[in-house]
Write a protein that binds this DNA or RNA. Structure first.
Length: 399
RNA sequence: GCCGGAGUCGUCUAGUGGCAAUGACAGGAGACUGUAAAUCUCCCGGCUUCGGCCUUCGUAGGUUCGAGUCCUACCUCCGGCA
């Protein structure tokens, strides 16, 4: 089976929402809903592919922007593609670089909540990225060199990286951008979606490689009209699936996902870009999201934050100095089976790389398992109970 | 014993007579959602009604309006000579 396809196998009733399915790719299938760990530079930071596989990962996601700058997409292609290059035996995703070009190369930070107003409000004119209708000029975060991305180049990069699922080149906006700009950017993202699809189709036709899927990316910030508009517009195009991205206020996440999933074709997979907090994922799965990716499990893990069923805590706190129990008593991941809080705390404080590895393994396992449990609960009809009970316990000591 | 050098917040360290006194590390608290992130922010002598107040730079005196900074003695440490 070389062709990409998705099938819904179970749902709570309406197949657009709270559903279970399978994404079939040339390199294997992904049982959804599923969490996809991020390995930006063709590596899950501090975690080997064996470890991330054991943590339950079905696929991994890398980034076109980073791999374009280093080591170069021609090199990855020569190595046999992203999966072979990084020794990952399974499906892979690549993000288009649109997000990075505007949020990283530009020195402008993305946000999904208003907690980071300071960075959100960085004036557009001060960013190291310039958007025009044809593409984006940006400076490399590595050496400051000037580069230009267009939808066509992003497609060429991603096609050569060889991921099973690629994303159209889109323009990320910020919650701080006014409505007029959101609209202007959305129209540009639509034009770029068309160019991405055309360029990617040509690449597929010109080559004999296994089928690579292309997902359209939805922007529109928190505006219902823009979100529905982009869902209708992109939904009518020949994309294999959709990525829901852009600036989203946390409190509106579920609502926004529901809007777009009411408009998008039900028989195609929906990926929510960059989200992994448990409450967000519950809201998103309920609203019909099939896959997630996020850097949070590894990033916060490296900084000592550990997810458990009773909430997230910092293992760096003195309370855990002599705590010889596992990071999470309810977990059976490699870390929790073999190591203690006192040990991981010691490693992280001593900046031993193994500490980053062990914390990341646990957080990835936790996140993957949570979404997997949501999947099971949809199958047996207990999703709403799981959501209620799980969140009640998780936030019992907080908020 | 003589000569020279040095003693500053847990540690190392900055400090022209005029700010509780620099920086780093350690320590404490917080942040982190398509990874410029093994990062970033804040606190780090005591008290505080947050305007300040008090106690501090080996010890004890002295000079001075004012001393971590100058002088004297002592203590300790490090060099060198005996």
């Amino acid at each position: 089976m070389n062709k990409f396809f998705y099938e819904v196998t179970s749902s709570l009733g309406d197949e657009r929402f709270a559903r279970v399915g399978v994404i079939h790719t040339p390199h294997g299938e992904i049982k959804t809903p599923a969490f996809i760990p991020v390995g930006t530079q063709a590596a899950i930071k501090a975690v080997s592919v064996e470890m991330i596989r054991e943590a339950g990962a079905q696929a991994v996601l890398a980034n076109a922007y980073h791999l374009y700058l280093r080591p170069g997409y021609d090199l990855v292609n020569e190595a046999g593609g992203l999966a072979k290059f990084m020794n990952w035996d399974g499906p892979t995703f690549t993000d288009s670089g649109g997000f990075q070009v505007l949020s990283l190369g530009s020195g402008f930070k993305k946000t999904i909540s208003m907690n980071q107003l300071e960075t959100v409000n960085t004036p557009r004119s001060k960013r190291y990225a310039h958007v025009d209708d044809d593409g984006v000029f940006f400076k490399s975060h590595l050496d400051g060199s000037l580069h230009r991305f267009t939808p066509e180049l992003s497609m060429e990069i991603q096609y050569n990286l060889g991921a099973d699922i690629c994303f159209a080149f889109d323009e990320l906006t910020s919650l701080a951008d006014p409505y007029d700009y959101q609209l202007e950017a959305l129209d540009r993202t639509h034009a770029w979606a068309g160019r991405s699809l055309k360029a990617f189709s040509q690449l597929r036709n010109q080559n004999q490689k296994p089928y690579q899927a292309l997902f359209g990316v939805l922007q529109g910030a928190n505006y219902e009209d823009l979100r529905r508009k982009t869902a209708k517009y992109l939904g009518a195009m020949d994309f294999d699936g959709f990525g829901i991205g852009g600036a989203i206020e946390k409190s509106q996440l579920g609502e926004i996902v529901k809007w777009v999933n009411e408009e998008l074709p039900a028989n195609k997979p929906k990926h929510l870009l960059g989200i992994s907090e448990p409450d967000d994922m519950f809201a998103a799965v309920e609203a019909g999201v099939d896959t997630f990716d996020c850097v949070s499990p590894t990033r916060v893990g490296r900084n000592g934050a550990i997810y458990t069923l009773d909430g997230r805590y910092s293992v760096l706190k003195k309370d855990y100095e002599r705590d010889f129990s596992p990071l999470d008593p309810d977990c059976n991941c490699y870390t929790c089976k073999n190591y203690t809080r006192a040990y991981v705390r010691h490693l992280l404080r001593a900046k031993e790389v193994l500490g980053y590895t062990l914390a990341s393994i646990h957080n990835e396992s936790f996140t993957i398992r949570l979404v997997h449990d949501m999947r099971e609960s949809i199958i047996d009809g207990s999703f709403h109970e799981l959501k209620r009970d799980w969140l009640a316990r998780y936030y019992k000591n907080k908020k």
